[in-house]
Structures are given as C-alpha cells and as structure tokens.
C-alpha cells in the first residue's frame, strides 16, 4: 500500500522533472542546471560525511581542478572536451590519493580543518598560477558540449544532461552504500575498533571514498566549465566548499537520495532570497546553523522529528 503510493509519488516527481524545463522561465532552468552541478559535487561530500563521518571542506578544490582541466585543455590546447573531463578526473583522483593517504590518518576536527586548509591552498594556487588559470581574468570561450552530434547549448538541453548524470551518480552511490563497502563504511563510523577487529581496512577504505569524492567534484567542475563557458577563481573559494558541504547537511547526510533535496535547496534558496540583496547570505548561513542545531538528521529527518514530538 505504502509502497504503491511511493511509486506513484516517484512517477509524479519524474513527470514534473521531465516537463520542468518546458514550463519554467529560462532563468529558473539555469538555476536547476546549477542544482544538478552542485548536487554531483555535493554527493561526493555526502558519501564522506554520511557514510564515513568525515567533514570535507575542500571539495571546491577538486571542482576547480575539473573546471580548469576542461578549460585549459579545450581552450589553450584545443583538445576535445572529453580529454578535459577525463584528465581532470584522473588528476583529481591522483591528488586526492596523494593528499588523502596522509591526512586520512587524522580524525574529527583535525581532519576537517586539514581539508579546509587544502581547500584554501587550492584557492590560492588557482589565483597565483595565472599562467594556467587566467587568475581573476579567468578563461573564456570554453566550447559547449555535444553528445553524438547533439549540441548541449541551451539551459534546457543541459538540464536533462546534467540531471541524468546526477541521477546515475546517485544510483551508483546507492549501490555502494547498500553493498559490502557501504556496510564497512558505516561500521567504521559507528564503532571503529569493532570494524577493525572484523578486518575492515579503514584507512584504505577512507582513501578510496575520498578519491571518489574528488572525482565527483572534478566531474561537476568540468560540466560547470562547459556550461558557463567561462571559469575564474571566484567559483572555487572556500565558500563554495561550504555550499557543497551544506547539501548533505541540509538534506540529512545518511541518505544519498537526500542530496537531491540538498542540491535544490542550495541552488534555489539564494534565488528566492535574492530580493533581500546581500542579506540573503546571512539567512543562508542561519539556515545552515538552524538545521545543524535543530534537525540533526536534516530535512529528511524532519517528518520523524515532528511525529516524535506531536504524533503517535
């Protein structure tokens, strides 16, 4: 009964999602594209936070690596976009491994602040290495993507493309967290000594998820570069990392499907609040603080909390 109702709900959401670009103004389709892009990057952070209990504040670094790889290889070297995407992902994976192997021995606050420091170092390097990144001027003229000869040159087309990738990524993550590796990840988050006693190689597992998170960030960055056709340092600051972190926090980190809600929130909330000018950022920050203080399981946990307090 409940299952059938769920199915109906999912079908309804799917129909709305498919029709959305036809119904919305161009500007809002654009916002939805960003929701998808941020969602892909945020999904990586969600895997670290929700499954491993690791707070990553450096995702914008890998987002930047993906974006600059695409921009540099396409614009400066004139290569096909696929090279930029693949090189970005491979480079991010390599860097994540080199950084992750040592720092993932740290835990809690220390690890989180180490990722924050890495995010800041990344931001500074993007700025200083202007021969590569164009610095504050950035790199323009990045070509749009085309899929089997089909140009993804309008927000509507890109909407379908990005959300398809986002949903596939969620599906893969869903498989991961419900499978053997996911059980081991949650086990080591809940009781590290017991997980270790059961032969879980915690350090290797954390490193793998850290690399996976970086690859998702890089992919999102590449897709961003080909959509915006222009990248500059402003897009890869620590604030952006915090926004990526917000996605799982808002939605409730334990659920990979929840990242959809988180992604919609971080993309739409500033739009809805933008009438308030600069004050919208304050409200955005307050939203984060209030969710952390009042909703330990995020928006996804809200119905349960309400039930507990008022219902049955």
């Amino acid at each position: 009964m409940a299952f059938a109702r769920n199915k109906l709900l999912i079908a309804a959401v799917a129909v709305v999602a498919l029709l959305l670009p036809l119904l919305l103004q161009r500007h809002y389709v654009d916002v939805m594209v960003f929701a998808g892009l941020y969602g892909i990057a945020g999904l990586g952070v969600a895997l670290l936070l929700g499954q491993c209990g690791i707070v990553s504040l450096g995702q914008a670094f890998f987002y930047g690596i993906g974006a600059y790889s695409s921009a540099y290889l396409c614009v400066t070297l004139g290569l096909s976009p696929i090279f930029g995407i693949v090189v970005g992902a491979a480079l991010s994976a390599l860097i994540a491994f080199i950084i992750g192997w040592p720092i993932l021995r740290l835990t809690g606050f220390f690890l989180a602040l180490a990722t924050l420091a890495i995010g800041m170092i990344g931001g500074i390097l993007f700025y200083e290495w202007d021969w590569l990144t164009g610095g504050t001027l950035g790199i323009g003229g990045i070509p749009t993507l085309s899929l089997f000869g089909f140009e993804l040159n309008t927000p509507q087309r890109y909407y379908y493309f990005v959300w398809a990738i986002f949903l596939v990524a969620i599906w893969l993550s869903h498989n991961l967290v419900t499978g053997r590796a996911g059980l081991a990840m949650r086990a080591m988050r809940d009781a590290p000594p017991a997980a270790e006693a059961l032969a879980v190689d915690m350090h290797a597992l954390k490193t793998k998820i850290f690399v996976l998170c970086a690859v998702l960030g890089s992919l999102a960055g590449s897709l961003f570069a080909h959509y915006a056709t222009y990248v500059s340092v402003q897009s890869f600051t620590v604030e952006r990392s915090i926004i990526f972190l917000l996605i799982p926090v808002i939605a409730g980190a334990a659920s990979v499907w929840g990242t959809i809600i988180g992604a919609l929130f971080v993309a739409l909330a500033p739009e809805l609040l933008s009438g308030l000018g600069d004050a919208h950022q304050v409200l955005f920050g307050l939203a984060l603080v209030l969710v952390v203080t009042l909703l330990p399981e995020g928006i996804v946990g809200l119905p349960k909390l309400v039930m507990k307090r008022f219902g049955a």
Binding site: L49, G53, V55, L57, G108, F109, A112, E239, I242, L245, V249, D278, Q281, V282, F284, G285, L286, L288, V289, V292, T293, P296
Partner: peptide
C-alpha cells in the same frame, strides 16, 4: 562533526 558544522556555519553567517 555537528559542532564543527555549527561553528563553520556561524563563521559563514557572521562573515555574511
């Protein structure tokens, strides 16, 4: 991690 998220969120809010 909740306290970390809280204080990061506060830093973001105060800065904004």
């Amino acid at each position: 991690e909740s306290f970390l998220l809280l204080t990061i969120g506060l830093a973001f809010t105060i800065s904004a």
